[in-house]
């Protein structure tokens, strides 16, 4: 096979593609990287919505001063954790870019960053979800109960069955978030990660 002939033909080959007049004209593509970034971006928006939802619960508190104070404390912690996680997501989105580093290193770098992010996010999301439920619980309880009930509730001045059922609820909701997160991960990002891993195997 004469590669020189083909090389010449490649040089002379003309295609009907034109360089766009502006970069903003370029629409989304099927790149694995773009798909993964889209996933992370959706998660980021979900977290922001969660934070807003959490803030809105404040208006459900009515005149309960104790509930308001407790809500502010717990929501403050949850919001701080959420901001921390959102910062991590933004940092990752900025890091995931293609440059002129040698090819193998680029794919390895992507895989390490994305896999560690998803590994960490599985647990962070669960933790965040649990912490977010606490202010929401407070807001909802205070709507229907008096201040004494809230004090009893928070000091765990309840029967063992009630305490266990509350712990059970929080564990159940956190596990639900954990499994839901895993399910979503298997549905979408995992496929793209597998594709990148297959490419890496070819080196």
């Amino acid at each position: 096979m004469n590669f020189d002939d083909i090389k010449q033909a490649m040089e002379n080959d003309s295609a009907d593609f034109t360089v766009p007049l502006s970069v903003s004209e370029i629409k989304s593509s099927h790149s694995s990287l773009r798909k993964l970034k889209k996933c992370i971006r959706s998660e980021l928006w979900a977290n922001l919505s969660m934070a807003i939802l959490l803030f809105l619960q404040y208006f459900n508190l009515g005149d309960h001063e104790l509930a308001q104070t407790l809500f502010k404390y717990t929501a403050f912690i949850s919001i701080l954790s959420l901001i921390g996680f959102i910062t991590l997501q933004i940092k990752l989105l900025r890091k995931l870019t293609i440059d002129d580093t040698f090819s193998r290193k680029i794919i390895e770098r992507f895989l390490i960053q994305i896999k560690s992010y998803y590994e960490v996010s599985k647990y962070i999301t669960t933790g965040l979800a649990s912490s977010v439920f606490i202010p929401i619980f407070i807001a909802n309880i205070s709507k229907h109960r008096n201040e004494q009930y809230i004090t009893d509730y928070l000091t765990l001045n309840l029967s063992t069955t009630q305490v266990l059922s509350q712990i059970g609820w929080i564990l159940f909701l956190s596990s639900l978030v954990f499994f839901l997160g895993n399910l979503l991960f298997k549905l979408y990002p995992k496929k793209e990660i597998k594709k990148l891993e297959r490419t890496l195997e070819h080196f």
């Binding site: 790149s31 694995s32 990287l33 293609i98 002129d100 680029i106 793209e192 594709k195 490419t199």
Partner: peptide
């Protein structure tokens, strides 16, 4: 376009372009 700001001019623009193009193609799954 996203990575051109990091191009330091250590090599020719075409060489840099080639490397970025190949790297993009490697992570592009049709």
């Amino acid at each position: 376009w996203k990575s051109v700001k990091r191009f330091k001019g250590n090599c020719q623009f075409s060489t840099w372009m080639y490397q970025v193009a190949i790297n993009t193609a490697l992570v592009f799954h049709k």
